[in-house]
Amino acid sequence: MKLTITKFIIPILFILLWQASTAGHGQNFQILPSPVKVFLAIINLFREGQIITDILVSLKHVLIGFLIASPIGIAVGIVLGYSKTAKKLLAPLIEFIRPIPPIAWIPLAILWFGIGDNPAYFLVFLGAFFPIMTNAYFGVVSVEENYKRAALSLGAGKKEIMADIILPAASPSIFTGLKTGLGISWFMVITAELVGSQSGLGYMIQLNRLLLHTDKVIAGMVIIGICGYFMNKTMEILEDKLLPWRPTS
């Protein structure tokens, strides 16, 4: 009980401070609207209903980009970790592309895919792909030699080594990659919608900035934060369900 109270002390102080700093100069609400105004804006957004479409559009952008990036990222990571030849062939190109921030791809994404859903899918894919691939790779190369040796002495062939040893042993690391990838997907979708889209939460806050509806901009940010939080929680629950064998998660 004590712990739950502790958790709320700082957020409550933060909101009080925010409220106090906006008191008395109501004319400045376009720079920093009060928390009360933002709260009312959130309620209004839901009453008007458009925000629900924006949320669903952003979620759609994230899920499609992420669901394309996941299998490809996992597969490439596993192949790189498993085959020395594949690593020699592919690693130079990957190591060259990886340090380029996904945001730097925005101009090309708009040039190639125009304005709409497609640049968002592409940018989410780019953002999610690299952490997923890298973690799958490290998961595979760090499988302990003794597991493979034990399996070989029990008669395992190549198929069993891959399906029963390497994949499950690497799965916690693969999952870490998926969690990181989903987090970056959420960053990327908002960025993509800010500049290259006509729907979604990113577009919504950009539009309200132009209209000087700062309360709605902050309301949008709060909603973005809440959605991200729930996505991360979902992944954690999924992880506990799918990997019950790990000691104390």
Binding site: E144, N146, Y147, R149, A150, A151, S153, L154, G155, A156, G157, E160, D164, I165, P168, A169, S171, L243, W245, R246
Partner: peptide
Amino acid sequence: VVFQDQALFLWKTVKENIEFGLKC
């Protein structure tokens, strides 16, 4: 081989570990 650190497959239950050689 029986190893000092057992090298049990942590992602398999006791029963699945014992079954592994038979499965192969």
